[in-house]
């Protein structure tokens, strides 16, 4: 069975970390990742919510910032690899036509490890 483990924290706190503090947290996490290396599939670190935009599907409008409503629930996610933000928005719009209702939040990915065990190489998108 595959599970996603979704990460939540206060962005005010995490964006106040110094580079060293940030690196320490990542090191601690890597130890767990290594221990369970066979089980980890994609590992993704998202960029801050300041880099997010949200497509409200019923109105077909794109607004800046993350999806902040509490009435809807998170149901799934896609990872797309495209040349520009605009293209990502276009894909989301086409998906919205196929499946109206709710919203898509677009968030650039900061770090992407397609296979968790390859965590030592640090690819940036």
């Amino acid at each position: 069975m595959r599970y996603t483990i979704l990460c939540y924290h206060s962005e005010e706190v995490t964006s106040s970390w110094t580079e060293e503090e940030d690196a320490e947290v990542i090191e601690n996490l890597k130890a767990v990742n290594r221990k369970w290396a066979k089980s980890f599939e994609p590992i993704v670190r998202l960029m801050p919510t300041t880099a997010a935009t949200t497509l409200r599907k019923s109105e077909n409008i794109v607004t800046d910032g993350p999806f902040a409503e509490t009435k809807e629930q998170l149901l799934g996610f896609y990872v797309v690899n495209v040349e520009s933000y605009e293209l990502a928005v276009q894909i989301a719009r086409e998906m919205a036509e196929a499946n109206p209702g709710g919203a898509y939040e677009l968030r650039p990915i900061a770090l992407y490890y397609p296979n968790g065990e390859a965590i030592e190489d640090a690819p940036t998108p």
Binding site: A51, Y85, E86, A110, T124
Partner: peptide
């Protein structure tokens, strides 16, 4: 710092929308 560069490029792209 390529992480900061990547975030900046995303922000510029987003601003350009």
């Amino acid at each position: 710092n390529h992480g900061q560069i990547a975030e900046a490029l995303a922000m510029i792209d987003k601003a350009m929308l």
